[in-house]
Computed example of a mutant assay.
Amino acid sequence: MTDSAPTSAQLLTIGELSRRSGVPHTALRFYERQGLIHSRRTTGNQRRYDRGTLRRIAFIRASQHTGVPLAVIGEVLALLPAGASPSKEFWERASECWSKEINARIARLERMRDRFTRCIGCGCLSFDECALVNPGDALAELGPGPHRLLRS
């Protein structure tokens, strides 16, 4: 016995997918344009989605809630075989990746907090000297005033 394409009764309309996933139609269309989900078209050009799309949407939304950018989510989803839904093992592997990214983001935020705390302790609040407010200001070395204005 060979696998056959799902019947129309087994496919979801965009409205059904929206209701079941809690994701607005507009977001579903956006996900599709980004290649995160896929639909089939009826002869009347209406979108129809496999039921497995619900798992993909759950994965997308959970990943977004952890702060993972859609571009990165798309890269990970691209590792799935065509038409496959994220499995438990897939979620676990992605979770390991997300954990590394989240830990790196936490470390960056902690460094920012520490720099800000040092800045408050310094008390300078100077746009001319403060490395936090004005980092890497090469023009400050030229002294005060505008240095990019054309002089006649």
Rank of each mutant, 00 (worst) to 15 (best):
S126W: 00
H25E: 04
Y31E: 01
E89M: 10
F90Y: 12
E141S: 14
R151P: 02
P135Y: 04
L132S: 02
G143R: 08
G35P: 04
A71T: 15
L109I: 07
E141Y: 07
T26K: 13
C130N: 07
S99G: 03
C119A: 13
K100P: 00
Q46L: 14
E92K: 10
L149C: 10
T13C: 03
L28G: 01
I14G: 00
Y31L: 02
T117I: 14
I120R: 04
L139V: 09
G121M: 01
S21Y: 02
A9V: 12
L149Q: 13
I73V: 15
I73F: 01
E92V: 09
E110F: 05
I106M: 09
G143C: 06
N134T: 15
I60T: 03
C119E: 11
E101A: 15
E96Q: 12
G121E: 07
I106V: 14
C119G: 04
S99M: 13
S8R: 11
L150Q: 07
A78L: 11
T2P: 14
C130F: 03
I73K: 00
T7W: 01
R56L: 08
A140W: 01
N134A: 13
G67T: 05
P24W: 02
A58Q: 13
Q64V: 04
E96V: 06
P135Q: 07
V68K: 00
R47F: 01
E75I: 00
R115L: 10
P86S: 12
R148Q: 14
T7C: 05
C97Q: 09
D3F: 14
G83S: 11
T7L: 06
R148D: 12
D3Q: 15
A84Q: 11
R48S: 08
T66V: 15
R118D: 15
E89Y: 04
A82L: 12
R19V: 08
H38N: 08
G83D: 13
L36I: 07
V133P: 00
S85P: 06
F127M: 10
I37W: 02
C119Q: 03
R29H: 09
T42V: 09
R40H: 13
E92M: 07
E96N: 07
S21P: 01
I57R: 00
L12I: 03
Q10D: 08
G145W: 02
R41N: 05
G22D: 08
E92A: 14
R61Y: 05
A78I: 09
A58E: 15
S99V: 07
I60A: 01
R105H: 11
A107L: 13
L11N: 02
G136N: 12
G22A: 09
C124H: 03
L142K: 08
L54D: 02
R148A: 11
T7G: 11
C97W: 10
S21D: 03
P6M: 03
R113C: 10
L139H: 08
R93L: 12
Y31N: 00
L125H: 10
G74V: 03
T42A: 08
R108V: 08
I120F: 04
W91L: 12
S152Y: 10
S152H: 12
C119N: 05
H65E: 15
Q10S: 06
I14F: 04
G15C: 06
R41E: 09
E89Q: 14
